[in-house]
């Protein structure tokens, strides 16, 4: 028994090590690629985000008459249909059908010729090739669909992942910079909020505790040495979009926080963050909205794919 336990622990350790190695390798590779990718994607998102914001405002303006749950369901369903069509017209449908046929044929061959070990191995190999071919044919539509889809998702994220502060509710605001103590930093809360505590200097940031006073969209003004930087603050009870963070030019941040303009490139501040509370709901609350979106859009796509004759 001890030996078996040792083997299991050893195996688990080995797997963990492998996982860590793969992740480290992936991150290292990403770091290298990011150097090339960031200037391109950041520029693309500078153009796409304002468009996404306008479209998002229009769409959510329309569905605002519904409850947030119904709004999410309808948007998910529509997204499923739109993605279905995008997929149909950006993919090689014939090649996808052929690749899927190869996969099915070899799966059936495994069943039909199970006594022939040679056929079993051969069919498995052909099946792997079929899977690889299918993924290859998915590549083009995925690349084309990827950015608009992510922009759409980020528009959903800024509405469902967090909620605006309620009147009277407290929140922390952080200003991140490389050397906080070497700068003079102040916050002018203005209308809509008042500063309760701050500024508190941390290892890489200054933090304030603020209290929201009345519903609306306001601007927090940060004075950093001679520089003035604005940050949007949203107070309300509905499905308002919130901008959690304002940061510099990096595509990942731009993707997740598309609302506000980028921080100036020579600013002492690397990013400003408001700790908005998570939205609470089993359907459209933080993280759950993704699940709802996933299930609804997939179901709609699955049901409508034969109607619109889309193969995937």
């Amino acid at each position: 028994m001890e030996t078996l336990g040792d083997i299991l622990v050893g195996g688990a350790n080995w797997l963990w090590w492998l996982y860590e190695a793969v992740i480290s390798l992936a991150l290292a590779a990403f770091g290298v690629i990011d150097v090339v990718l960031n200037p391109v994607l950041s520029t693309v998102l500078r153009v796409l985000n304002p468009i996404g914001n306008v479209l998002g405002d229009v769409v959510y303006g329309v569905v605002s008459v519904l409850s947030p749950a119904w709004g999410l369901v309808i948007i998910s369903a529509i997204t499923g249909v739109v993605m279905l069509f995008m997929f149909k017209y950006t993919s090689n449908q014939q090649a996808i059908v052929a690749a899927k046929d190869t996969i099915k044929a070899n799966l059936l061959a495994l069943k039909l010729y199970k006594d022939e070990l040679r056929v079993t191995f051969l069919s498995q190999w052909r099946l792997m090739l079929g899977i690889a071919r299918l993924q290859w044919h998915m590549f083009k539509p995925v690349v084309i669909v990827l950015l608009p889809m992510l922009v759409g998702l980020s528009q959903m994220g800024i509405r469902y992942q967090w909620r605006a502060l309620h009147a009277g509710e407290q929140a922390y605001v952080h200003v991140y910079m490389d050397e906080p103590l070497s700068h003079e930093v102040a916050l002018e809360a203005g209308a809509g909020a008042e500063v309760e505590v701050g500024a508190m200097a941390g290892a890489g940031d200054y933090a304030w505790r603020i209290r929201a006073t009345e519903p609306g969209v306001y601007t927090l003004k940060f004075l950093v040495d001679t520089e003035t930087i604005d940050k949007e603050l949203v107070v309300g009870d509905g499905l308002e979009r919130v901008s959690v963070e304002r940061a510099g030019a990096h595509w990942v941040t731009q993707l997740f926080h598309p609302v506000e303009a980028l921080l100036p490139s020579r600013s002492a501040v690397s990013r400003i963050e408001i700790k908005y509370p998570d939205r609470e709901s089993w359907i459209y609350g933080s993280d759950y909205w993704v699940l709802t979106f996933f299930v609804i859009s997939m179901l709609v796509a699955l049901v409508l794919a034969p109607v619109f004759k889309v193969k995937f």
Binding site: V145, F294, L302, A305
Partner: peptide, 10 residues
């Protein structure tokens, strides 16, 4: 999640 088609394919 990047779309139903690719999701189903994967």
């Amino acid at each position: 999640y990047i779309g139903p088609g690719a999701g189903f394919a994967v």
